[in-house]
Simulated assay, not measured.
Amino acid sequence: MDAAVKSDDQLADRRQIRDLLENWVVWRDAGDWERFRQVWHPDGRMMATWFQGSGDEFIRVSQEGWARGVSILHFLGGISIEVSGSRAISQTKMTISQRGDVEGVTCDVVCTGRFYDFLEKRNNRWGIVLRQPIYEKDRIDPVSPAAKLELDAALLARFPEGYRHLAYMQTRIGYTVKPDMPGLKGEEVEQLYRRGAAWLRGARL
């Protein structure tokens, strides 16, 4: 293939992937569920602190949470994309912001990290095969500056540093939180990087 044509194809792939990643956040946070479904392949899976399962199941539980007033929003930063033929790995800087009641106080939790995505092009369409967030650091703040918040130190210490306040809130509102998600450092994230490299080489997930 001519180098210029190959370069144009790679640029087109990267644009499509970037659009997909940005649409994920906008459509999910807006509750635009039918368009949100388009970013996944049928076998796509979502890993999160409070949910692990298929893309379709993630949409269902997100709708249920939406109906109950669960407030989880996302904001994106820089995006790094590696493309190898019909496969890609992307890393996207992001924040997760959740509002809820913690020990009787309305609070906001903000967690900073990355979305680490396994993507594949099938029938000329890119889609997510696996989304695994990486949780780097978080904090919790009462919405009212006058409010006093006291946390259960033992519960807080059960969770990794990168998402312990997010996990605390989610536990308090009734979710079962996965305790071994990847963070900025450690074996979990190193294993994820190895899986990503293998994916680009053609390995199965």
Score class of each variant (00 low, 15 high):
Thr106Pro: 14
Arg139His: 14
Met169His: 04
Met169Pro: 06
Tyr135Ile: 00
Val129His: 10
Arg158Val: 03
Leu149Gly: 08
Arg172Leu: 15
Arg125Ala: 14
Thr112Glu: 14
Asp101Val: 12
Pro145Tyr: 00
Arg158Ile: 07
Arg131Asp: 02
Thr112His: 15
Cys107Pro: 02
Gly127Ile: 01
Asp152Asn: 08
Leu155Cys: 06
Asn124Pro: 00
Arg172Cys: 11
Asp152Gly: 03
Thr112Ile: 12
Thr112Leu: 15
Arg139Tyr: 13
Leu149Phe: 05
Gly104Ile: 04
His165Pro: 03
Tyr116Met: 02
Pro160Leu: 06
Lys137Asp: 12
Arg139Ala: 14
Arg164Gly: 08
Lys148Leu: 12
Asp141Tyr: 10
Thr171Glu: 09
Glu103His: 08
Glu103Leu: 06
Thr176Val: 09
Arg158Ala: 15
Gln132Tyr: 10
Leu130Thr: 06
Val143Tyr: 06
Ser144Thr: 01
Asp138Leu: 03
Ala157Ile: 00
Asn123Glu: 15
Leu166Lys: 09
Arg164Thr: 03
Lys121Ile: 00
Gln132Phe: 05
Lys148Arg: 13
Phe118Ala: 11
Val129Cys: 13
Ser144Arg: 10
Ala147Lys: 04
Val129Thr: 08
Val143Leu: 15
Glu103Ser: 14
Arg164Trp: 00
Asp138Ala: 05
Arg172Phe: 05
Tyr163Ala: 03
Cys111Phe: 05
Tyr116Lys: 04
Lys137Leu: 13
Trp126Tyr: 07
Arg172Gln: 15
Gly162Glu: 09
Gly113Met: 15
Asn124Glu: 13
Leu166Val: 00
Asp108Pro: 09
Thr112Trp: 15
Glu150Cys: 03
Ile128Cys: 12
Pro142Glu: 05
Ala146Phe: 15
Phe159Leu: 02
Leu151Lys: 03
Lys178Ser: 12
Arg164Leu: 08
Asn124Ala: 13
Val102His: 09
Val105Tyr: 07
Leu149Glu: 07
